[in-house]
């Protein structure tokens, strides 16, 4: 460790720090070692997510039965409103499966975003106590929602199995969910950073997601709606760029027998593109503020 500076006896602090291998305390780690550090904390992410689920249902009499009840009740309410009362069913054979796949996929992204936007603000004391890569917290929140999504998907598969019968095409749900999870991690990281420094975001997000809900073709078939409204041909191409629509569509392609007539153009390609863009952009964006989250 001996360098030229050592001979001078006294030196300026920066040089002395460097000579003894000290680094700035508020320096964020380089992206590569940050990623490695994050990977080494995967156990923490899992345990934290599990602990959160436990704390969430600890007070409820039915406990984690709510993980199954919540999607069922949600589905029932939407079915009543859009299927029965407003009669949006028109022309879709298995409307229940059509509606549920849309709602479950949408809810997965929506909840990851809204919950994740508060993941750091709510854990500020933990952040100020211990050193760990901050991205573990939003990741744990996404993991929570993924668990919920898997339960919901299981429910949906039972329903589709009872109505349409089992099909090997179902296996495509796995890559679909994988792509959506990548996207969710990305957007959750973005909103986690934004939500930490601008807490107004948590108030605003519900309105944004609700608008998104109605624009994503969850209750009705987008192509059918557009033909009905005599919209020009390019509109469908613009609307199908919506990531949520794309993720919903690839799940529907996997599950629904007669989805071909309702499907969106290039849904798989658009899904894959969004997944990689969101994940990389979200991760880098989150990492760039890593040293500042403790300030709140």
């Amino acid at each position: 460790m001996s360098t030229a500076a050592e001979q001078t006896g006294t030196s300026d602090p920066a040089a002395m720090a460097e000579r003894h291998g000290l680094s700035k305390s508020s320096l964020r780690p380089p992206l590569g070692s940050y990623t490695r550090e994050l990977w080494s904390r995967r156990q923490f992410i899992v345990s934290y997510a599990r602990a959160r689920t436990y704390a969430l249902y600890a007070g409820a009499r039915l406990g984690s039965l709510w993980q199954i009840l919540t999607p069922i009740l949600n589905a029932a309410v939407y079915y009543l409103a859009f299927g029965v009362l407003l009669g949006t069913k028109n022309g879709i054979d298995n409307y229940v499966a059509f509606l549920l796949s849309g709602i479950f996929v949408f809810t997965y992204t929506q909840r990851s975003m809204t919950e994740g936007s508060r993941s750091l603000a709510l854990n500020l004391s933990l952040i100020r106590t211990l050193h760990f890569p901050r991205a573990t917290l939003p990741l744990a929140y996404v993991l929570n929602e993924l668990t919920q999504m898997l339960v919901s998907m299981g429910l949906l598969l039972v329903i589709v199995g009872l109505t349409d019968g089992i099909s090997p095409r179902w296996l495509l749900v796995i890559p679909a969910l994988f792509l959506q999870t990548m996207f969710n991690v990305g957007v959750t990281l973005i909103f986690a950073r934004v939500g930490t420094f601008v807490s107004d975001v948590s108030q605003l997000l519900p309105f944004v997601t609700r608008t998104w809900l109605y624009a994503s073709g969850i209750f009705f078939s987008l192509p059918a709606k557009l033909t009905q409204a005599d919209a020009p041909g390019w509109v469908i191409h613009v609307l199908s760029l919506n990531p949520i629509s794309a993720y919903i569509d690839i799940v529907r392609r996997a599950l629904l027998d007669e989805h071909v007539k309702n499907q969106l153009p290039h849904a798989w390609a658009i899904s894959i593109a969004w997944s990689f863009i969101a994940l990389v952009a979200g991760f880098v964006y989150f990492w760039r503020a890593e040293d500042r989250y403790g300030r709140g």
């Binding site: 602090p13 920066a14 720090a17 003894h20 291998g21 000290l22 680094s23 700035k24 305390s25 508020s26 320096l27 602990a51 704390a55 004391s125 933990l126 952040i127 100020r128 106590t129 211990l130 050193h131 040293d291 500042r292 403790g294 300030r295």
Partner: peptide, 27 residues
């Protein structure tokens, strides 16, 4: 501890300092 970056000047540390405070709650 590296939780509050200085406005000017610098703090150099060897390894990661751990801060233990009374106000810091866990879960």
């Amino acid at each position: 501890a590296g939780l509050l970056p200085p406005a000017s000047g610098a703090i150099y540390t060897g390894g990661r300092p751990s801060l233990l405070g009374v106000n810091a709650a866990m879960m």
